[in-house]
Each structure stands twice: as C-alpha cells, then as structure tokens.
C-alpha cells in the first residue's frame, strides 16, 4: 500500500514540532485523519479545528470531509499571511 503524507504549514508546524510525516496506512477519510492526529497530540488537534484552518488533498483545497486514498498528500493550512 502506498504511504500517504501529511504536511503542516505555518503556525501548525510550530505547534506540532514537525512539518511532514508519512502515514501507513492512511486513514479512510479526512475526518479520521484529524481524529488520529488529535488523539496523538490534542494541542495540534485543537489547532486543526481552529478558525480558518483549511485542508488540501493533493494540493487542492478540500471542502468538508473527503475520502482519502493511499498515496494522497494531505496538507493543513492555517489562515494565509499573504506575500
């Protein structure tokens, strides 16, 4: 099974203390992934549920909960700072 990857951006990276990690096997849905990350690190879980935090699957913004496939890259994006 292909591994999936989770990417954190901005302040989430500082909160979690990591920027990228592999998931093997990946959870079935985005919601399950949030639950998994939250159970491992409640502070990160709270930050992921924070206002304006968006998720992207394979570099496209995801609306609501979506199914995840092996090999997907999931990113969590806090509110953008602009350039």
């Amino acid at each position: 099974m292909k591994m999936s990857k989770v990417v954190l951006l901005g302040r989430l990276r500082d909160i979690a203390g990591w920027r990228e990690r592999a998931l093997d096997p990946p959870p079935a849905t985005l919601a399950a992934l949030r639950d998994l990350l939250s159970s491992e690190d409640p502070v990160l879980g709270e930050a992921l549920a924070g206002r304006g935090v968006q998720a992207a699957v394979n570099k496209a913004l995801a609306r609501g909960d979506v199914a995840l496939q092996p090999g997907d890259e999931i990113a969590f994006l806090p509110p953008m700072s602009g350039g």
Binding site: R11, D14, L77, P78, M80, S81, G82, G83
Partner: peptide
C-alpha cells in the same frame, strides 16, 4: 498577493517569533 497569496509569514525579533496575518 498581500491578502491572498498562500504564504505563512513569521517575524523574528528580540521578543521571539510572531506569525503575521494580513
């Protein structure tokens, strides 16, 4: 760019780091 570009900006100063929003 200043409002919508996907960047996450942190300023470092003598008092520590600050994450910046528009």
């Amino acid at each position: 760019l200043k409002t919508e570009a996907p960047f996450w900006k942190k300023e470092r100063g003598p008092d520590g780091d600050r994450w910046i929003e528009p």
